[in-house]
């Protein structure tokens, strides 16, 4: 019973490779991801997972000279954008899809007042609008005081810069906002404010959001559905309660245990053995094999699935032994309502 609403973003079997020092590296391999209109979707991954490549490829921001989409397609608001030229991408960026990044300072023009940067963004999409009023409106929307319009980026705190970047993104009235680690550089109290703001904005504007983070707690508290990525593969996805409450992929299970930062009866912290994946030297089959406690010979032959995890509608997993892992390992559930 998937929601009947239209999808703003559909990624099907997307494989993206980079050429680096003569070697070809697969940043994404057979990635599937869907964001429904107005839906909040989380994408969880660690270093080398390909999550940032995904954010960039959806906006045509991967360098054409060294990267190539080998397979699959990207559909934004019903339009296939897989093979767009840079000029055509201009019609996608900002509206319908906007993005905010981890480090707002490097995306804001240091010598231009915040208000003018917002105004520029407005004019790019609606040239004849009464800009001043709209700038004030946007500042209010992201809860920045009107005085910020005449401030320069360096005069603002980290949290305020992220709000300013958000205002610039919202100026284009996007239908999908991609937030790539939007709070990673911020303190926890500021992070909580930004997350609350994102949630509020989504509800007020009816905007869909793809929240990309390494922090399971953030994603769990802000998203309705979740995708877990490992070494360029989407390994498990479904509703937040299902994926985090009844994880089926050994990686998701390990990650959830590790994220709780709790010690077991022996006083040990949960962990996943081994090192993060090196995309240049991935094994054949499932990339998690070298670190997986459940690995068997079959796993090295081919990437499994996707299989229906059979716990919750839409809960999907790419592991041969999902039925064994899923049984009874209720590791965690999000502390807050995923609303």
């Amino acid at each position: 019973m998937p929601p009947p609403r239209q999808n703003i973003l559909e990624i099907e079997g997307l494989t993206l490779s980079y050429r680096a020092r003569g070697a070809v590296v697969r940043a994404m391999d057979g990635v599937n991801l869907v964001v429904g209109d107005g839906e909040a979707v989380g994408l969880v991954g660690e270093s080398g997972s390909g999550k940032s490549s995904l954010a960039r490829v959806v906006l045509g921001l991967v360098p054409e000279r060294v990267s190539r989409i080998e397979a699959g397609r990207i559909v934004i608001a019903g339009r296939d954008v897989t093979r767009l030229t840079q000029a055509e991408w201009e019609g996608v960026r900002g509206n319908p899809v906007a993005i905010v990044f981890q480090d707002p300072l490097s995306y804001l023009n240091p010598v231009m007042q915040i208000g003018r940067q917002i105004a520029e963004s407005i004019l790019r999409h609606t040239p004849d609008l009464k800009v001043a009023a709209r700038v004030d409106e946007l500042l209010e929307l992201v809860r920045l005081p009107p005085a910020c319009a005449t401030a320069y980026p360096h005069e603002l705190s980290g949290g305020m810069r992220q709000r300013a970047l958000l205002a610039i993104a919202l100026a284009c009235r996007p239908r999908l906002l991609i937030a790539d680690e939007p709070t990673t550089a911020l303190d926890v109290t500021t992070q909580a404010e930004i997350l609350a703001l994102l949630k509020d904005l989504r509800q007020r504007l009816g905007m869909a959001m793809l929240l990309i983070s390494h922090d399971l707690g953030i994603v769990a508290s802000a998203c309705e559905r979740i995708y877990v990525m490992y070494a360029g593969h989407t390994v498990e996805w479904g509703r937040t309660q299902a994926v985090f409450g009844y994880p089926a992929h050994p990686y998701t299970i390990g990650l959830l245990k590790a994220a709780q930062a709790a010690r077991n009866a022996q006083g040990r912290f949960a962990t996943i053995s081994g090192d993060p994946p090196n995309l240049a030297e991935l094994p054949t089959g499932c990339p998690f094999v070298p670190r997986c406690p459940y690995a068997m010979a079959e796993c090295s032959r081919a990437m499994p699935g996707p299989f229906d995890a059979q716990g919750d509608a839409g809960h999907t997993v790419r592991c041969w032994r999902y039925h064994e892992t899923a049984s009874g390992i209720a590791v965690a559930r999000p502390a807050r309502d995923a609303g």
Binding site: G254, L255, A261, R268, F269, T271, I272
Partner: peptide
């Protein structure tokens, strides 16, 4: 990475 933290703490 989150998956590595436990190793270091242990």
């Amino acid at each position: 990475d989150v998956s590595i933290r436990g190793q270091i703490l242990n």
